[in-house]
Each structure stands twice: as structure tokens, then as C-alpha cells.
């Protein structure tokens, strides 16, 4: 009897019937390519409505394959997923008009202009009134600052312009969800900032933004949540404060005698001290910081400065995903 109740509880609500709190959910999402390579391994994403979700991971960690599965381009080997509460890939035709997407960089017809390329994509949308297609396209072009280059052939576009056109395609209509794969790829710092502003705007207007990047620093300022991929697995998921909390406090000491200071720290039982040019850094662990100060002074180590800090997210990110140039098969 209990089991039956549980089954009913878990039964999938009909598409769109439930005021879903999650914009994207995946359960055990897995992709094994014919060669046997597991690109995505049992990923459970939970992207809250209204969040700006940074989907992070080094190149080749499975981000793009995950995004392709989310959008129904690639079939999952195992697992299920929903977009805006709608089962995918079955409900794709119903839900995708509400999803703006940029997958693995912009892709357009090289010999068509920016506007013609957008008109081409717009013509495929059966949920959009055809009469207003020019308006939609011009508005989207204006939004990404491409109005002046609307007639220019795509092949003459710079990388930055191409990326913007890709964003314009995602912004052709009001969206409830934006799925953007590396939208800042190839952009200069100015362009990167503009993309961040666009993401902020879309978020302010109520859209959930799911944005992937291999550079945490590029999207850190706009994200409310992050998921970190490594080797096809989701190794961290949570809000930005949660990510920060996942990193322990550490102490940074500036001194003329780093060796002596590091000896003191070792005896106190902190994490392994790392020597720096004019001082030493160590994870605090459970050691109170005032005890560190007292011990250093007691051992006659001059302390020019002592700072208790959290490592920045970039370091944490590298810690989660590993460092180096190895390509993971």
C-alpha cells in the first residue's frame, strides 16, 4: 500500500501542468558514444527557475554533449530530463520555442547576411506569427548591436560578430530559458562584458539562464548557481555561496621568515603550508586564527600581515576539475 502511494507521488505530472520549480532537471543523464566512450556519466542537474546557472568544466568534460542532450540533438543512453517541466526529448516541439539556445558556437550560412540567416531560423518557428518575423529579427539584431552589419555576409563577420549573431538567434523571441554554450568564446573583454550584461538583462526579465563556460572568471559575476563538470561527471552543484563554503578558510602570512612560519603552522596542525615569495599560505582547518598569531609571535616570527581568506573560485574550480593539458578520452 505504501509502495503504491509512493509510486503515485512520483508519477510524472502532465507536461506543463505543474508549476515546475526547476527550469532543467536531469536524472542519471548518460551518454555513451558508439565507440564506448562515456562522454556524460549519470549527471543529475537541478537548475532552479530564475537562476543564472553557470555550467563549468574544462574543455572535453562533457558540457557540450550534456547541452546537446538537453536540447534533444543527441539521444541519451540512459537517464531522463525535463526542460521547464516538460519531458524531453518527447516534448521538444512544445517546449523548445520557449528555449533560446546557442550550441557549441554560432553556425550560419556563410553566404547569407546576418538578417537573412535569422529570417531563415525564424521561418522554422511554427509558434511565431510570420507577419512579425522582420520585426523580431531586427529587434534581435539591435539587441546584440548588429543592426549596422545586418546585410553583411556572415563569412565576412568577425568571430565576435558571429558570436553575437548566435546570441541574437537565441533571443529571437521572449524566452523562459536560455541555454548558451560558451557564449563568450572568442570575444574580447568588452564583448564578454556585453554578453554578461545581456545575461543579466534576460535574467531580470524573468528568464532562467543556463550558461556554460570553461572560464569561471568570465561568468562568476552573473551566476547565482554553478555546476562543475569533470570527466563527464557533475562534481559540484549548488549556489555560489555554497560553492564558496565548500572551500575551507586559509591563512596567508606575510613575513621575512617564511620557513620559520611554515614550521609553526605545521606544528599547529594546519593544512600543508605552501611557501610564497614573501610569506606562506596554508589551509586553516580547525585551527583558530588567533592561535596562529599567538604562536607566530611566541616563536619570534615577524608578522607583517596575517589574512584569513577563502581561496578564490578559480583556484577552487581547478581543485575540482584538475589541472593540466591532458586530454581525457
Amino acid at each position: 500500500m505504501t509502495a503504491e502511494v509512493r509510486v503515485t507521488d512520483r508519477a510524472e505530472p502532465q507536461a506543463g501542468a505543474r508549476p515546475a520549480t526547476a527550469a532543467i532537471t536531469t536524472t542519471g543523464l548518460t551518454k555513451r558514444f558508439p565507440g564506448g566512450q562515456v562522454a556524460v556519466d549519470a549527471v543529475d542537474l537541478d537548475v532552479p527557475r530564475g537562476s543564472v546557472y553557470g555550467f563549468l568544466g574544462p574543455n572535453g568534460s562533457g558540457k557540450t554533449t550534456t547541452i546537446r542532450m538537453l536540447l534533444g540533438l543527441v539521444g541519451a543512453t540512459a537517464g531522463t530530463h525535463e526542460l521547464l517541466g516538460v519531458q524531453m526529448p518527447r516534448g521538444g516541439l512544445d517546449v523548445l520555442p520557449r528555449v533560446g539556445a546557442l550550441v557549441e558556437g554560432p553556425a550560419f550560412h556563410p553566404y547569407l547576411g546576418g538578417r537573412d540567416n535569422l529570417l531563415r531560423l525564424d521561418s522554422g518557428d511554427r509558434t511565431a506569427p510570420g507577419r512579425e518575423s522582420r520585426q523580431r529579427v531586427d529587434l534581435a539584431l539591435e539587441r546584440v548591436g548588429l543592426s549596422a552589419a545586418a546585410r553583411k555576409r556572415y563569412r565576412k563577420y568577425s568571430l565576435g560578430m558571429r558570436q553575437r549573431l548566435g546570441l541574437a538567434a537565441a533571443l529571437l523571441r521572449p524566452r523562459d530559458l536560455l541555454v548558451l554554450d560558451e557564449p563568450t568564446n572568442g570575444l574580447d573583454p568588452q564583448g564578454t562584458r556585453e554578453v554578461r550584461n545581456l545575461l543579466r538583462e534576460a535574467s531580470t526579465e524573468g528568464a532562467t539562464v543556463f550558461v556554460s563556460s570553461h572560464l569561471l572568471s568570465e561568468i562568476e559575476q552573473v551566476c547565482t548557481h554553478v555546476g562543475v563538470m569533470s570527466h563527464g561527471r557533475l562534481v559540484f552543484q549548488g549556489s555560489l555561496p555554497e560553492l564558496r563554503a565548500a572551500a575551507g578558510l586559509r591563512v596567508r602570512i606575510e613575513t621575512t621568515r617564511p620557513e620559520a612560519a611554515s614550521e609553526v603552522l605545521r606544528r599547529l596542525g594546519t593544512g600543508k603550508p605552501e611557501l610564497r615569495p614573501n610569506g606562506v599560505v596554508a589551509e586553516l582547518g580547525t585551527v583558530p586564527s588567533d592561535q596562529v598569531t599567538a604562536e607566530l609571535v611566541a616563536h619570534g616570527v615577524d608578522v607583517r600581515q596575517l589574512v584569513v581568506e577563502r581561496p578564490d573560485l578559480e583556484e577552487l574550480f581547478v581543485g575540482l576539475t584538475g589541472e593540466g593539458f591532458d586530454v581525457d578520452e
Partner: peptide, 29 residues
Amino acid sequence: MSTSDALIGGRSAGPDAPAVRRHGLDLRL
């Protein structure tokens, strides 16, 4: 990138408003 019109990029008609698909011949595409 101008921040002009707030019509695009934001939320559509309403939360969970299903998109209405036209049927019949698809001449636009």
C-alpha cells in the same frame, strides 16, 4: 549591444504558457 527593448530575451506570455503550434502546410520554411 543596446538595452533598448525589453520585449525579447525575457519571459514569454506567462509562466508555463505552452507555445501554440500552427498546423497545416508549412510554407514559411
